[in-house]
């Protein structure tokens, strides 16, 4: 076959790119077991002290709890608001719908620091700096685009005639929504919720501006630790996040394809 050489080259190139995508992140795993307080590679010795530090030091563990709580609240609020908006946009089927959709996606495009400075200015005036409400509000803004896109994509393939059928058989609007529409767009809503959770859990730029020593999220804690000193605890956190993420995505992909394949 004449195609063999190009195919081999393509395969090799992709292998290199895949390694380049994944491998750099893997480097945090050996670093997390270092026995000295240093981020020099390769680490010497073996210890679990950085994992212990992460789970026992209130600075670290407290920020994890804060991040998890904020992310759960954001996932709830952004998913409800974003799903409502996506349904509204789908029903408009007009220029207004497209316009509102474009507007709702802008938080993804606005440069993070510009948004952060503005939010900080407003929060200083409204005493929202370093508060739960402050974090949830700002992260919800950043999560809404993901929910609108995920639910919107699901609604686009949803057969609206099913609703008409339900209505013609006498179901009320609410009943139609909860028994017909909601179950059918649930995959979109769930993936939107997951995106919203991760967006909030990872958000660092706006959080850096609106943080306070009393209420800090995990990315802020990681960032300040990295700029302060070479503490391998960041590598331990990184490894935990990496493993949790791989597990969730791996399971999601496996079950997602299995269901579609069935």
């Amino acid at each position: 076959m004449r195609l063999r050489l190009p195919r081999l080259l393509l395969g090799l190139t992709c292998l290199l790119i895949a390694v380049w995508l994944v491998a750099p992140t893997l480097v945090v795993i050996p670093m997390s077991f270092a026995d000295k307080k240093s981020l020099a590679f390769p680490p010497t010795g073996f210890s679990l002290q950085w994992y212990e530090n992460f789970f026992t030091n209130p600075q670290w563990f407290g920020s994890l709890v804060t991040s998890a709580k904020v992310a759960v609240m954001v996932a709830l609020v952004a998913t409800v608001i974003g799903t409502m908006a996506a349904i509204g946009i789908e029903r408009m089927k007009s220029r207004t719908g497209g316009l509102i959709r474009a507007v709702l996606i802008t938080p993804m495009i606005v440069p993070g620091v510009v948004l952060a400075v503005g939010v900080y200015a407003v929060y200083l005036d409204t005493q929202l700096v370093g508060t739960w409400a402050g974090y949830v509000l700002a992260h919800t803004l950043l999560a809404i685009p993901f929910v609108v896109i995920a639910v919107g994509a699901n609604l686009a393939v949803f057969d609206a005639r099913l609703e008409t059928a339900a209505a013609s058989l006498g179901a009320s609007r609410l009943k139609t929504f909860f028994t017909i529409t909601l179950p059918l767009i649930l995959p979109g809503i769930l993936s939107g919720a997951l995106f919203a959770f991760v967006t909030s859990f990872d958000e660092v730029i706006v959080s850096l501006f609106i943080t306070s020593p009393q209420l800090k999220t995990l990315p802020v804690q990681i960032f300040s630790s990295m700029t302060r000193d070479a503490d391998p605890t960041v590598a331990a956190v990184g490894s935990l996040i990496f493993m949790a993420t791989s597990l969730i995505i791996g399971l999601g992909l496996i079950f997602g394809t299995r269901r579609r394949g069935a």
Partner: peptide, 8 residues
């Protein structure tokens, strides 16, 4: 998270 990847 981007912070972790930057750390790497």
């Amino acid at each position: 998270s981007g912070v972790v990847r930057t750390l790497a």
